[in-house]
Amino acid sequence: MTRVQLEHILRAAGDIADDIEIIVIGSQAILGRYPNAPDALLVSVEADVYPKNVPARWELIDGCIGEGSPFHETFGYYAQGVEEGTAILPDGWKARLVPVKNANTRGITGWCLEPHDLVLSKYVAGRDKDRRFARDALRFGLVQREELELRLGTLPVEPGRIEQIRERIRVDASS
Rank of each mutant, 00 (worst) to 15 (best):
A134P: 13
G107T: 08
F71W: 08
D18F: 06
R3K: 15
S27C: 07
V54H: 14
F75Y: 14
N102K: 12
L142R: 02
Y78P: 00
G66I: 00
P35D: 01
R168H: 11
R3F: 13
R139A: 13
I108Q: 05
C64S: 11
P55H: 14
Y77V: 08
I30W: 01
E146W: 04
R127N: 09
A56Q: 15
A12H: 03
A173I: 07
G26T: 06
D130G: 06
L41N: 00
I16A: 00
R33D: 05
L142W: 00
I23E: 02
G32W: 02
N104L: 15
D39A: 15
I88M: 11
G85L: 14
R127E: 10
I88G: 06
E84K: 15
A47M: 06
V124L: 07
A56T: 14
L60N: 07
I61G: 07
A103V: 13
I23V: 15
Y77M: 08
T105W: 14
V100M: 10
V43W: 14
L60Y: 12
T109L: 10
H72G: 00
G32K: 00
V24D: 01
H8G: 01
R166Q: 01
N102V: 10
D62G: 02
Y77G: 07
R135C: 12
T109S: 07
R168W: 11
C112S: 09
Q5K: 10
E7Y: 11
Q144V: 14
P90D: 07
E59M: 15
Y50A: 07
D62R: 03
D15Y: 11
L155H: 01
P38C: 02
A95H: 13
G110S: 03
L150Q: 04
R168F: 10
S121H: 11
Y123R: 08
L97M: 15
S174P: 06
R132S: 14
D130T: 02
R132F: 14
R139H: 15
